[in-house]
């Protein structure tokens, strides 16, 4: 029994919330996004600042509205594990941890398989950008703590962005900054059904993610309209997604360092979303650049 911590109840559920009578849950058929100020191609505004953790060689804190995470970078420092095969290159070690209060359902303190996989994904996304051949026999440790998570894809993307900025803040030689971006495919248009037996005003009888409210359905045999691409989807929007893509991109070198796509999609949708994500990454790059310049500007005495 773990006496050091006070474990929560074994089975935890989100608290019951009394919604006001006029509360309406967001659905994809609403003409706007969950956050009504945003368009499908807009990302959430980013707050990015370095220097949060004083003990670390480099650190960064990023907020995408309700997604908040902190990143600390230690290194280059000597490799702890002896007996590893010498390779002439340094090692990049990433660890990502979701705080137990970060998601709607409480997470355990022990690292679960999903976090381990995310850590691996993160190091694969960052490794091409870091000049590891300059630091043989050394290791760089990147630690990310997710304080609040609003959308899984945005968490991963924000982690990549924050880690790049923290690495640069730590003075580690890099070929380029890596920007991360996510997008979801959500079906907003009504499904076109080949049978003719649907009447007008038929609501909710289909158990898919879209419902029809008083719209006539054209009984054509054409394929479903392709899903719409929503950039930087949050948790509410992700519930309706048919697929998602997370992309890590180096804007100056014009190379993709990581791509992760789940859910079914046509290859044309994927090409389109890759293009959108790259454009978004260019914009994120400007924010990263600005944050780093600010951090240098603060140390004016050293210059």
């Amino acid at each position: 029994m773990d006496r050091k911590r006070v474990p929560g109840p074994e089975l935890s559920v989100a608290p019951l919330v009394e919604y006001p009578a006029d509360f309406k849950r967001w659905t994809p058929q609403d003409e706007c996004r969950h956050d009504s100020k945003r368009q499908p191609e807009d990302m959430r505004p980013i707050y990015l600042k370095t220097g949060l953790i004083t003990q670390a060689n480099g650190s960064a804190y990023i907020e995408l509205e309700k997604t908040k995470l902190a990143c600390g970078v230690y290194g280059p420092r000597p490799i702890k594990r002896v007996g590893q095969i010498f390779s002439g290159r340094g090692i990049l070690n990433c660890e990502i941890k979701f705080a137990s209060f970060s998601c709607a359902k409480r997470r355990s303190n022990i690292r679960d398989p999903q976090e381990r996989e995310l850590s691996q994904i993160l190091s694969q996304a960052l490794a091409p950008a870091v000049r590891l051949e300059k630091i043989p026999k050394s290791a760089i440790d990147v630690y990310i703590t997710v304080l609040e998570s609003d959308g899984w894809g945005s968490c991963v993307a924000a982690a990549v962005t924050a880690a790049s900025v923290a690495l640069a803040h730590a003075g580690i030689e890099m070929l380029d900054l890596v920007a991360g971006c996510s997008a979801s495919y959500i079906q907003t248009a009504p499904l076109s059904i080949s049978s003719l037996s649907i009447s007008e005003g038929d609501t909710g009888s289909i158990s898919t993610s879209t419902t029809n409210t008083n719209k006539t359905i054209t009984a054509t045999a054409t394929a479903t309209q392709p899903p719409q691409i929503f950039m930087d989807a949050d948790f509410e929007e992700e519930k309706y997604q048919q697929g998602a893509i997370v992309l890590a991109y180096m804007p100056s070198l014009h190379e993709i360092t990581h791509v992760l796509q789940s859910g079914k999609a046509e290859s044309s949708t994927i090409s389109q979303s890759v293009e959108h994500c790259m454009e978004a990454c260019n914009k994120i790059y400007a924010v990263m650049h600005h944050a780093l310049l600010e951090s240098i500007g603060e140390n004016k005495e050293a210059l």
Binding site: Q124, I245, Y249, H258, Q261, G263, K264, E266, S267
Partner: peptide
């Protein structure tokens, strides 16, 4: 049907778009 059900990149290199 030719739909892409998933995509994942591995290893430490980068790919041009």
């Amino acid at each position: 049907a030719g739909e892409i059900c998933g995509l994942q990149k591995n290893h430490d290199g980068s790919i041009e778009p």
